[in-house]
């Protein structure tokens, strides 16, 4: 396959960026999208040019590192896939492919396609955990009875890999799907119950502080999410937050 790539190049956080054009040739349809970028970078290095910086790690679709806004969609045209699991057979020979970083004020660009998604970490740190006493006689989690439906829903929410596709695809750069998945996975389980009110209040406050936009329920995030995190989580977070306003004393 021969392709024309239009890639966002930006030397540093404060540098002015622009879309640059790169032709690539002899691309196998069985390559992953990241492998195709590897081929381009190999070519750039050989030519003595600066390779395109991009995030990647496991390349198995489970780490949440790879990103890239490809042809107007987060993680490209596929559904339920991360960029590393997107294959070149999804494109046609001779196609022009636009590749951009996640665009959000809360995800500042570090270089080229690499953004700083530390805002997600800070949302988790604000309350996305359960406090457990390490007294030595901690109860086995399996000893607690949990309804199967709740366990399944909590597990589904917990499959969020925090890649940020929801923010990237949302017209408002809202982090509601991510935050609600992290709220839900704990709110549905007895272990998360005692801190439920404090958790949702703190995580939402942190989410607002980071400069993410507000959810307008377009549902784009759910469609583009590589893990299929449901909008139901956002409704649950809305419920949890409202409940917390009445039950929490702070």
């Amino acid at each position: 396959m021969n392709l024309t790539l239009k890639i966002w190049r930006q030397a540093g956080p404060d540098a002015k960026g622009s879309m640059e054009t790169y032709p690539v040739s002899d691309i196998s349809p069985d390559m992953s999208f990241l492998e195709m970028i590897d081929v381009l970078n190999d070519q750039l290095v050989r030519d003595g040019k600066d390779p395109v910086a991009f995030d990647h790690d496991c390349r198995e679709g489970i780490c949440g590192m790879c990103s890239m806004y490809i042809n107007g969609e987060a993680h490209g045209p596929g559904r339920g896939v991360t960029t590393c699991q997107l294959h070149m057979r999804s494109f046609s020979d001779g196609e022009t492919i636009y590749i951009e970083p996640w665009r959000a004020a809360a995800f500042p660009i570090i270089k080229d396609l690499v953004t700083d998604r530390g805002a997600f970490d800070r949302i988790i740190q604000a309350g996305g955990y359960v406090s457990v006493n390490t007294s030595g006689n901690t109860q086995d989690a399996n000893a607690l009875p949990i309804p199967k439906d709740n366990a399944d829903k909590a597990f589904d929410a917990a499959t969020c890999i925090g890649c940020g596709a929801c923010v990237a695809t949302c017209k408002n750069s809202s982090a509601m799907l991510f935050t609600s998945a992290k709220v839900s996975q704990l709110a549905l389980l007895p272990q998360g119950e005692p801190e439920a009110a404090r958790r949702v209040q703190r995580m939402v406050a942190q989410m607002d502080e980071e400069g993410f936009g507000n959810c307008t329920n377009t549902g784009a995030c759910e469609v583009e999410c590589p893990k299929g995190i449901s909008l139901e989580n956002i409704a649950r977070m809305n419920r949890e937050f409202l409940k917390a306003q009445f039950t929490s004393e702070k």
């Binding site: 239009k6 042809n71 107007g72 951009e100 665009r103 959000a104 809202s174 507000n214 784009a220």
Partner: peptide, 20 residues
């Protein structure tokens, strides 16, 4: 506020693929 959350727009965006 939502406009402020994305100061730099995408050069190529295809929102019709995922929302009404």
């Amino acid at each position: 506020r939502n406009a402020k959350a994305r100061p730099q727009k995408y050069a190529y965006n295809k929102p019709s693929a995922n929302s009404t």
